[in-house]
Simulated scan of single mutants.
Amino acid sequence: MVDVATEIVIRRPRGVVAAYASDPGNAPSWYTNIKSVRWESTPPLAVGSRLAFRAHFLGRNLDYVYEFTELDPGTKLVMRTAQGPFLMQTTYTWADTEGSATRMTLRNTGQPAGFSAVVNLLMAPMMRRAMRRDLALLKQILEAA
């Protein structure tokens, strides 16, 4: 079982950060490991939406489908894998901070399957590094806009 959370403060209004981060089409621009996203349901994003992701992690291509289970625009988004090698739930939350900035938290919880026990032991630290890198890239993109 892994449970990894990381957060960052982005000097942009919460609505701007949440809109960009929750748009599945933007995922490949700020998630280093995500290579593509394809709608399996009809847009726009809503509870029950399903999207197919292709990622590259630990030297492997991973294909999985996320189903969106909670969506409170500008506040919280929760999605969980409906199929694929990672039984994972991803949660985004956004909160206002001083000076029109936004604190974004990214949390992944779940049970990776199909990997060796050794890789599973290393999964949380590797995920934490990747998540911090992704949030830093998101910050860079949004603060440059």
Rank of each mutant, 00 (worst) to 15 (best):
D72G: 03
V78P: 06
G48F: 09
H56K: 15
H56F: 14
Y64C: 06
L51K: 03
F53H: 03
H56T: 13
T81W: 08
L71W: 00
M79P: 02
E67Y: 05
M79W: 07
D72T: 10
A52V: 11
G74Q: 03
G59T: 08
D63P: 06
L62M: 10
L71D: 01
V78S: 11
T81H: 06
K76L: 15
R80N: 09
R60S: 14
V78N: 05
A46C: 09
Y64P: 08
S49E: 06
A52W: 01
N61Q: 15
T75P: 04
T81M: 03
P73N: 02
N61S: 15
R50H: 11
T69I: 14
F68H: 06
D63Y: 04
N61W: 08
F53N: 00
E70I: 06
R50W: 04
E67R: 14
R54V: 14
T69D: 09
L51H: 05
G59H: 02
D63T: 13
S49G: 14
F53I: 07
F57L: 13
A55C: 11
L58C: 04
D72K: 13
L77Q: 04
H56Y: 09
E67V: 15
E70G: 07
D63E: 15
A46Y: 01
R54I: 11
A52S: 14
T69G: 13
L62C: 11
E70K: 12
N61Y: 11
V47E: 05
V78L: 13
G48D: 08
T81G: 09
E70C: 06
T75V: 14
K76R: 15
L77H: 00
R80V: 00
E67H: 08
